[in-house]
């Protein structure tokens, strides 16, 4: 099972570290990262393996949103099914 985490916001030091530390603390393995910085706006997409996640995914998603609020970023953790079903036949 995989999830997609998207992070959008003003570029600051250590965004990647903070998000991936949070992932590691819940046993979520980061598989792929793609990031761009457009005019100081930071945009990162992480594809993660959540097969061995240590908490309920819904709670994980809340935790990520909370981390986003603390850092002034918009962070969403969503199951990959939503992207696959919308964009693949």
């Amino acid at each position: 099972m995989r999830a997609v985490i998207t992070v959008v916001g003003k570029d600051t030091v250590g965004i990647l570290a903070k998000v991936s530390t949070k992932c590691a603390s819940y046993n979520v393995n980061v598989n792929e990262v793609s990031q761009t910085v457009l005019q100081e706006m930071f945009c990162m997409i992480m594809v993660c393996d959540i097969s061995n996640i240590s908490i309920d995914f819904g709670t994980f998603s809340d935790e990520m949103a909370k981390l986003g609020e603390e850092q002034g970023l918009s962070i969403h953790a969503m199951h990959e099914d939503i992207f696959n079903s919308m964009h693949k036949i």
Binding site: V4, T6, C43, I45, V47, I82, N84, M86, H87
Partner: peptide
Amino acid sequence: MIDTRDILET
């Protein structure tokens, strides 16, 4: 990998 544009569109 799921296409980045598709993710952002959703």
